[in-house]
Structure formats: C-alpha cells, structure tokens
Amino acid sequence: MPFIIKKLAVIGTGLIGGSFALALREAGAVDRIVGIDSDRSNLERALSLGLVDEIAEDACSGVSGAEVVFISVPVCSISSVLGSIAASLPQGCIVTDGGSVKAAIVRECDALIPAGCSFVGGHPIAGTENSGATAAFAALYRGKRCVLTPGATSSAQALDTVARLWKAAGAEVCNMEPGHHDRIFAEISHLPHAIAYTLVHAVGTADVEGENVLSYTAGGFRDFTRIASSDPVMWRDISLMNRDALLASIDGFTASLAELRRRIDRGDSDGLSEFFTTAKKFRDGIL
C-alpha cells in the first residue's frame, strides 16, 4: 500500500513509541522513521534493533521535515517536550502522543502548538510491565483499542491521519472527549495500578511474626500484582496529572472495601456470597 506519511519522528523509543514504529514499519505505512530519546543508550538500542531508520542528536533537528511527531514520554513531560520543539516543527506537522491522561495534556499542547500545525491527543490501550527499546514489539497494538481525544487544534485532516496510522498499527480507533477519557481510565487503569502497588506495599511491609510474607506468594498473587512491576515514575506522573479523577475512584473503591469489611465482620455469609457473585458476574462479562 502507499505510505500514509513519508517521515515520522518518534520522541521516546521505549515500549510504546518503539512498538508504534515497528508496527508502522511492518505495515509499510511510513517511509522513514527517526528516533529521538534523552537516553542515548536506549536510542542506540532502538537503532540496532531496527525500530528506527536513524537517530537524531537532538529533538529539534529530529523533527525537521516530519509530517507526524509521536511523543511517547512520561505524561508530565509531554507538554514541555512539545514546547521545546514547537519552533522547529514544519508547517502542517501533526503532533500526537501516547499518554494515558488526556485533559491536561490536550489543554497544554493546544496552547503550545504553532499556527498551521495540529495536536491530536491519543491513548493506545496496550502495554506490558516492561520498558525500553528491548521491550518493543510490532504486535503490541494488534486488536487493541486506541482512543483519540481531539482538541481545539485538531483539524479533520490531522485526526484522519492519526487514525489511519493507528489502524495501520493494528488498533481499533475511537474518539472521546478528553475529560470523559480521564474519568473512565481512572476507574479501569489508574485505580487498578494504584491498588496493585498498594497491595504489594502492604504485604511487603507486613510484620507477620518475622516472616518474609512475599516468599510464600504463588500464581494468584503474582498474576494480580503483575502491573506493580510497571515503571514507578510513569505511575507517579499519571497519579498526579489525573489526581481528581483518581481520588474519586479511590474513594469509590474504599467504600466498596469498607462494605466488604463490614460483611466479614458481621459474619454475613449471604452478604459475602452476594458481594462476590456480583463481582464475578462483572468480571466474567469482560472475558
């Protein structure tokens, strides 16, 4: 098929950015991919692994001539990265991102994007607990959903181009208002990560007669807490940037946990059966 764009610049050549580049290369959707990364050793690995065709010494030179720039860095850094490259963006360039918080990013980036360019917020719903160029693989987005959150500077052409790129990478694309996105993903992504980290922290610091409690963990605990091996800096930034929505989700979870505690404390067999059965029905419904 013909190229969707000729040149793509990827800022952040880790799992998300590297997998996007690999998927587009495999699909024949992009002619040339330039990698940009503050971690020089990771950038060189991205080049040696074939994630990118070339690497840039700095972000401003790397985005020169790019039709699309994909920013894949921690969410608290996305707008500052855009600010640092804004003056170097070619006319008509489309900037998009892969961050999992959208309202603040879209608002900040809309204010920074130069006239004649477009910003299109994006969030691919895919990932693993691993990071860096070595974690990237072309099939990461295949069959997964990617949510686009257009803002004031998202032209129809820019939105269509970004959607076509994600579809070429194998994703199913939908559009969503940025604030609505943040409230949904506080519940289904940010809260589960917070719970996983909290559970491991609680068990790891538990004092049970001097035993190393974690040494007794098996499949269930390890499966449930796998995401607590994700990058702590990334989840620190997500927690702070989506603070209000995440706090509301934590309050809702705390209320549910308190209700479970009450039923256990009362010895309420029927109540516990109802609680667990309701949860099981919800869980079985997403399989």
Rank of each mutant, 00 (worst) to 15 (best):
A255L: 12
V173P: 08
S154L: 02
C146H: 03
T13Q: 05
Y216T: 13
S118F: 02
G116D: 02
C60Y: 00
Q157S: 13
A111V: 05
H123D: 03
E209T: 14
I250H: 03
G62W: 08
T134E: 11
R283G: 10
S88K: 13
N242I: 07
I5F: 14
A169D: 11
R236H: 08
I11K: 07
S38R: 15
P178E: 04
S131I: 06
D268L: 06
I71G: 13
A21P: 06
R164W: 03
V68C: 12
T13N: 12
I33E: 02
S131H: 11
S155A: 09
S64H: 03
H193C: 06
F221S: 00
R283L: 07
L47P: 01
G143A: 08
V75M: 07
V173D: 02
F20S: 10
G50M: 01
P74Y: 12
C146N: 02
S80D: 15
G98W: 03
C174H: 02
G252M: 04
E209G: 13
E26Q: 15
R145W: 06
D231I: 13
E259D: 15
G35V: 04
D97R: 01
T205N: 11
R261I: 08
T13D: 07
D251W: 07
P150H: 00
H181G: 09
A135L: 12
F70A: 01
R32E: 01
L247N: 06
S269Q: 11
L43K: 04
M241Y: 05
K144N: 14
C146A: 12
I195L: 15
G143R: 13
S269E: 12
R262P: 01
S88C: 14
V106M: 09
G170C: 03
V52F: 04
V68P: 11
V200E: 04
S189L: 12
H180G: 06
V34A: 11
R32L: 03
T254V: 09
A158L: 09
I238Q: 06
R236F: 08
G50P: 04
L214I: 14
A171K: 09
R107Q: 15
V73T: 15
L191K: 10
V213R: 08
L247Q: 12
R183L: 09
A87V: 14
L8W: 13
L148F: 04
G92D: 12
I36A: 03
F275S: 01
V101G: 09
D37N: 09
L51C: 08
D110P: 13
A168Y: 14
M234D: 00
